[in-house]
Computed example of a mutant assay.
Amino acid sequence: MKAIFDERQWKHQPKNFMANGALLPNPEQPERIDRLLIGAKAAGCTVQAPDDAGLGPIAAIHSAEYLTFLQNIYTRWRRIDGAGEEVIPNIHPANRTDSYPKSAIGQAGFHQADTACPIASGTWEAAYWSAQSAITGADLLTTERAVYALSRPPGHHAFGDLAGGFCFLNNSAIAAERLLAQGKRPAILDVDVHHGNGTQGIFYNRRDVLTVSLHADPARFYPFFWGHTDERGEGAGLGYNLNLCLSRGTDDAGFLAGLDVALQQIRSFGADVVVVALGLDAFIDDPFKGLAVTTEGFGRIGAAIAGLGLPTLFVQEGGYLCKELGDNLTSTLTGFESA
């Protein structure tokens, strides 16, 4: 299997993360790259850099207004007297139809959903190449059975014009849109411990991309406001979004039972390609401790996905610093390859 990664993805080095009113070290650290690369290579992956497809595939998902913000906000922020070293909002609009301010502070509040997506000097460049890794991965599915995109920073909490939850550009959505433009019928399968709320939001009114997410029940878990079972899509998209909420602490057997339902939905949709938003944070010892999937369980997840018999793009989402992070990636990819 080929793995796609660009060295410029190291440039996003977030420092801060506010949770429960406390300022904490940001969990989405560049060290994740080292551990994931080790895991990919242990699975037999050959690593290559992505091509540069330009802004077009990204702008097919994200608004021009938002992309302008991401490219320029850090420079503008540094001009504010006494501003912190990272762009972190302190005010938000009540809804997306409120006025769009001219100030950097106001725009940060409009385009950043929470305090978990700080923007610094290297954020845009890293996010851009993270997206290009997913785009190149999608393009390679014309000749490859499966590809792994080491997309870091991750993407599934990013909406069309809104960052959040460590995410800036929605790599999985960008890849699915790229495949759609090639005449494919893509489904997105999100197995991250957190609901892929940005992905859901992007496709919620559409029927050309199926979105399915297995995640810890958001009634008491991030992202709280999205990811519930009654969210089935709207308008043309009604019935094309499926959320499978799992109880906190769900183990391998419970996760795989939910995955069976997800895979049947993908078959019923008639997908001819699948984008897997590959969060490894469902692991029992992940710092977020939402679910209890084991390293061996990730292998069974990979094997079950292989059972679809479809070209598959694995796009890295969550999975945070613990000694088994690389092993969990190895288990997933080898489980897929050996099935």
Results as ranks from 00 to 15, higher is better:
residue 261 V to L: 15
residue 25 P to H: 01
residue 270 G to C: 02
residue 113 A to H: 04
residue 136 T to V: 13
residue 12 H to I: 00
residue 75 T to A: 13
residue 338 S to A: 03
residue 65 E to F: 01
residue 336 F to I: 02
residue 46 T to F: 03
residue 50 P to Q: 04
residue 115 T to P: 00
residue 97 T to A: 03
residue 199 T to V: 13
residue 220 R to N: 13
residue 50 P to L: 10
residue 74 Y to F: 15
residue 41 K to N: 10
residue 151 S to D: 00
residue 3 A to F: 11
residue 218 P to H: 12
residue 232 R to C: 10
residue 120 A to M: 14
residue 111 H to N: 07
residue 96 R to P: 01
residue 256 L to M: 09
residue 171 N to G: 05
residue 304 A to N: 06
residue 211 T to C: 10
residue 209 V to E: 13
residue 282 A to F: 03
residue 52 D to S: 10
residue 328 N to I: 01
residue 327 D to F: 02
residue 55 L to V: 06
residue 277 A to G: 13
residue 245 C to L: 08
residue 317 E to Q: 06
residue 130 S to F: 12
residue 150 L to M: 01
residue 63 S to Y: 05
residue 47 V to M: 01
residue 26 N to G: 02
residue 214 L to N: 11
residue 325 L to S: 00
residue 18 M to G: 07
residue 251 D to H: 07
residue 62 H to T: 10
residue 182 Q to A: 15
residue 175 A to D: 05
residue 50 P to K: 03
residue 13 Q to S: 00
residue 259 L to S: 11
residue 27 P to S: 03
residue 99 S to E: 07
residue 131 A to S: 13
residue 142 T to R: 11
residue 208 D to R: 03
residue 150 L to G: 00
residue 257 A to D: 15
residue 295 T to C: 05
residue 183 G to E: 15
residue 226 W to N: 11
residue 256 L to F: 05
residue 104 A to W: 00
residue 158 A to Y: 01
residue 126 A to K: 08
residue 276 V to C: 05
residue 190 D to P: 02
residue 63 S to D: 08
residue 16 N to T: 13
residue 148 Y to H: 09
residue 32 R to P: 05
residue 217 D to Y: 13
residue 92 H to T: 13
residue 235 G to F: 10
residue 139 D to A: 11
residue 320 Y to T: 09
residue 17 F to V: 07
residue 251 D to T: 11
residue 46 T to W: 04
residue 1 M to I: 09
residue 190 D to S: 02
residue 144 E to Y: 02
residue 183 G to M: 12
residue 18 M to W: 14
residue 201 G to K: 08
residue 321 L to H: 04
residue 310 L to I: 14
residue 176 A to G: 13
residue 285 D to A: 12
residue 195 H to N: 14
residue 8 R to N: 12
residue 145 R to Y: 06
residue 331 S to N: 09
residue 242 L to F: 07
residue 231 E to V: 06
residue 16 N to V: 12
residue 199 T to L: 09
residue 204 Y to R: 09
residue 66 Y to P: 07
residue 40 A to W: 11
residue 150 L to Y: 02
residue 283 F to H: 15
residue 296 E to S: 10
residue 219 A to V: 12
residue 294 T to R: 04
residue 322 C to N: 07
residue 287 P to S: 08
residue 9 Q to W: 03
residue 124 W to N: 02
residue 279 G to Y: 12
residue 44 G to I: 08
